[in-house]
Protein backbone atom coordinates (compact mmCIF):
# COMPACT_ATOMS: atom_id res chain seq x y z
CA UNK A 1 0.00 0.00 0.00
CA UNK A 2 1.38 3.37 -0.97
CA UNK A 3 1.63 6.45 1.14
CA UNK A 4 0.08 9.51 -0.44
CA UNK A 5 2.37 12.45 0.22
CA UNK A 6 0.97 15.80 -0.82
CA UNK A 7 -1.14 14.04 -3.41
CA UNK A 8 1.60 11.83 -4.82
CA UNK A 9 1.71 8.09 -4.20
CA UNK A 10 4.96 6.90 -2.65
CA UNK A 11 6.02 3.37 -1.79
CA UNK A 12 6.83 2.86 1.89
CA UNK A 13 10.53 2.28 2.56
CA UNK A 14 11.82 -1.29 2.70
CA UNK A 15 13.32 -0.73 6.14
CA UNK A 16 10.46 -0.69 8.62
CA UNK A 17 12.55 1.36 11.06
CA UNK A 18 12.38 4.43 8.85
CA UNK A 19 10.22 7.06 10.46
CA UNK A 20 7.79 9.09 8.44
CA UNK A 21 9.99 12.06 9.27
CA UNK A 22 13.15 10.50 7.88
CA UNK A 23 11.29 9.24 4.84
CA UNK A 24 10.02 12.73 4.11
CA UNK A 25 13.37 14.39 4.66
CA UNK A 26 15.99 11.89 3.59
CA UNK A 27 14.15 9.85 0.98
CA UNK A 28 11.74 12.32 -0.58
CA UNK A 29 13.78 15.46 0.20
CA UNK A 30 10.70 17.18 1.53
CA UNK A 31 12.77 19.00 4.09
CA UNK A 32 10.19 21.52 5.22
CA UNK A 33 9.32 19.08 7.98
CA UNK A 34 11.95 19.59 10.67
CA UNK A 35 13.61 17.35 13.20
CA UNK A 36 13.98 19.00 16.58
CA UNK A 37 14.16 16.15 19.05
CA UNK A 38 13.18 12.83 17.47
CA UNK A 39 11.61 12.19 20.88
CA UNK A 40 8.07 13.38 20.31
CA UNK A 41 8.69 16.35 22.53
CA UNK A 42 8.95 19.47 20.38
CA UNK A 43 6.43 19.39 17.53
CA UNK A 44 8.85 20.57 14.83
CA UNK A 45 8.08 17.44 12.80
CA UNK A 46 4.32 17.99 12.77
CA UNK A 47 2.54 16.88 9.60
CA UNK A 48 -1.05 16.03 8.83
CA UNK A 49 -2.22 12.47 8.28
CA UNK A 50 -5.72 12.33 6.84
CA UNK A 51 -6.07 15.94 7.93
CA UNK A 52 -5.08 15.39 11.56
CA UNK A 53 -1.88 16.71 13.04
CA UNK A 54 0.62 14.10 14.18
CA UNK A 55 4.31 13.83 14.97
CA UNK A 56 6.19 12.35 12.05
CA UNK A 57 9.20 11.45 14.22
CA UNK A 58 7.24 8.91 16.23
CA UNK A 59 5.29 7.65 13.23
CA UNK A 60 6.91 4.83 11.31
CA UNK A 61 6.56 5.42 7.60
CA UNK A 62 4.90 2.03 7.35
CA UNK A 63 2.10 3.23 9.63
CA UNK A 64 1.19 5.86 7.06
CA UNK A 65 0.61 3.37 4.28
CA UNK A 66 -2.81 3.85 2.76
CA UNK A 67 -3.08 7.29 4.31
CA UNK A 68 -2.72 10.83 3.07
CA UNK A 69 0.19 12.78 4.42
CA UNK A 70 0.28 16.55 4.05
CA UNK A 71 3.47 18.44 4.82
CA UNK A 72 4.21 22.14 4.82
CA UNK A 73 5.06 21.78 1.13
CA UNK A 74 1.55 20.43 0.58
CA UNK A 75 -0.10 23.24 2.55
CA UNK A 76 1.84 25.94 0.72
CA UNK A 77 0.45 28.50 0.06
CA UNK A 78 -1.56 28.89 3.24
CA UNK A 79 -2.84 32.13 4.78
CA UNK A 80 -1.07 31.21 8.03
CA UNK A 81 2.27 31.56 6.29
CA UNK A 82 1.72 35.18 5.39
CA UNK A 83 0.24 35.86 8.81
CA UNK A 84 3.26 34.35 10.56
CA UNK A 85 5.56 36.60 8.54
CA UNK A 86 3.44 39.71 9.06
CA UNK A 87 3.05 39.12 12.81
CA UNK A 88 6.67 38.03 13.17
CA UNK A 89 5.60 34.64 14.48
CA UNK A 90 9.05 33.31 13.70
CA UNK A 91 12.69 34.09 14.19
CA UNK A 92 15.15 31.35 13.26
CA UNK A 93 12.32 29.67 11.35
CA UNK A 94 13.13 26.14 12.40
CA UNK A 95 9.99 25.33 14.37
CA UNK A 96 7.87 27.36 11.95
CA UNK A 97 6.67 24.71 9.47
CA UNK A 98 5.61 22.52 12.39
CA UNK A 99 3.83 25.43 14.05
CA UNK A 100 1.99 26.21 10.82
CA UNK A 101 0.97 22.62 10.15
CA UNK A 102 -0.21 22.28 13.74
CA UNK A 103 -2.08 25.57 13.59
CA UNK A 104 -3.83 24.69 10.36
CA UNK A 105 -5.18 21.49 11.88
CA UNK A 106 -5.92 23.22 15.17
CA UNK A 107 -8.16 25.77 13.49
CA UNK A 108 -10.18 22.90 12.06
CA UNK A 109 -10.38 21.26 15.48
CA UNK A 110 -11.75 24.41 17.09
CA UNK A 111 -14.25 24.91 14.29
CA UNK A 112 -15.40 21.33 14.80
CA UNK A 113 -16.07 22.11 18.45
CA UNK A 114 -13.32 19.90 19.84
CA UNK A 115 -12.58 21.03 23.38
CA UNK A 116 -9.20 21.44 25.06
CA UNK A 117 -7.96 21.12 28.63
CA UNK A 118 -8.70 24.82 29.21
CA UNK A 119 -12.23 24.71 27.79
CA UNK A 120 -14.50 25.48 30.71
CA UNK A 121 -17.55 23.54 29.58
CA UNK A 122 -16.62 20.29 27.91
CA UNK A 123 -20.18 19.52 26.95
CA UNK A 124 -20.63 22.73 24.97
CA UNK A 125 -21.01 22.24 21.26
CA UNK A 126 -18.75 25.08 20.29
CA UNK A 127 -15.60 26.43 21.82
CA UNK A 128 -14.33 30.00 21.70
CA UNK A 129 -11.30 31.03 19.67
CA UNK A 130 -9.62 32.69 22.62
CA UNK A 131 -5.95 33.40 23.19
CA UNK A 132 -5.85 30.89 26.03
CA UNK A 133 -7.40 28.21 23.83
CA UNK A 134 -4.82 28.81 21.13
CA UNK A 135 -1.97 28.81 23.64
CA UNK A 136 -3.05 25.51 25.18
CA UNK A 137 -3.71 23.87 21.83
CA UNK A 138 -0.35 24.95 20.42
CA UNK A 139 1.63 23.92 23.48
CA UNK A 140 2.90 20.81 21.73
CA UNK A 141 4.94 23.01 19.41
CA UNK A 142 7.95 24.41 21.22
CA UNK A 143 9.72 27.55 20.08
CA UNK A 144 13.04 28.54 21.61
CA UNK A 145 13.54 31.90 19.93
CA UNK A 146 10.44 33.15 21.71
CA UNK A 147 8.09 33.99 18.85
CA UNK A 148 5.08 32.80 20.85
CA UNK A 149 3.16 36.10 20.89
CA UNK A 150 3.45 36.52 17.15
CA UNK A 151 2.45 32.92 16.51
CA UNK A 152 -0.70 33.27 18.57
CA UNK A 153 -1.49 36.63 16.98
CA UNK A 154 -1.08 35.14 13.51
CA UNK A 155 -3.34 32.21 14.28
CA UNK A 156 -6.02 34.40 15.83
CA UNK A 157 -5.89 36.71 12.85
CA UNK A 158 -6.34 33.91 10.34
CA UNK A 159 -8.99 32.15 12.42
CA UNK A 160 -11.02 35.29 13.11
CA UNK A 161 -10.72 36.45 9.58
CA UNK A 162 -11.99 33.08 8.41
CA UNK A 163 -9.40 33.14 5.68
CA UNK A 164 -8.77 29.43 5.93
Amino acid sequence: MDITVNGTAVAPPDDARVSLLDMLRDHLHLTGTKVGCNQGACGACTVLIDGRRVLSCLTLAAQAAGREVTTIEGLDPHPLQAAFVERDGLQCGYCTPGQICAAAAMIDEVRAGVPSYVTADLSAESVPFSRDEVRERMSGNLCRCGAHNGIVDAILEVADGSTV
Binding site: G43, A102, M106, V114, S116, Y117, L122, S123, S139
Partner: peptide, 28 residues
Protein backbone atom coordinates in the same frame (compact mmCIF):
# COMPACT_ATOMS: atom_id res chain seq x y z
CA UNK B 1 -11.94 13.12 24.33
CA UNK B 2 -13.98 14.72 21.57
CA UNK B 3 -16.78 12.17 21.59
CA UNK B 4 -20.10 13.73 22.64
CA UNK B 5 -21.02 10.84 24.92
CA UNK B 6 -17.67 10.99 26.68
CA UNK B 7 -17.91 14.72 27.11
CA UNK B 8 -21.46 14.50 28.42
CA UNK B 9 -21.32 11.37 30.57
CA UNK B 10 -17.66 11.24 31.55
CA UNK B 11 -16.28 14.79 31.43
CA UNK B 12 -13.61 13.70 33.91
CA UNK B 13 -12.28 11.26 31.32
CA UNK B 14 -12.37 13.83 28.53
CA UNK B 15 -10.55 16.33 30.72
CA UNK B 16 -7.94 13.76 31.74
CA UNK B 17 -7.19 12.82 28.16
CA UNK B 18 -6.99 16.47 27.15
CA UNK B 19 -4.54 17.06 29.97
CA UNK B 20 -2.19 14.49 28.50
CA UNK B 21 0.60 15.12 26.00
CA UNK B 22 -0.13 17.35 23.00
CA UNK B 23 -2.85 17.40 20.37
CA UNK B 24 -0.49 15.70 17.94
CA UNK B 25 0.24 12.84 20.33
CA UNK B 26 -3.41 12.46 21.29
CA UNK B 27 -4.24 12.13 17.59
CA UNK B 28 -1.80 9.22 17.36
Amino acid sequence: AAHPLVRRRYPMLARAILAGASAQIRNM
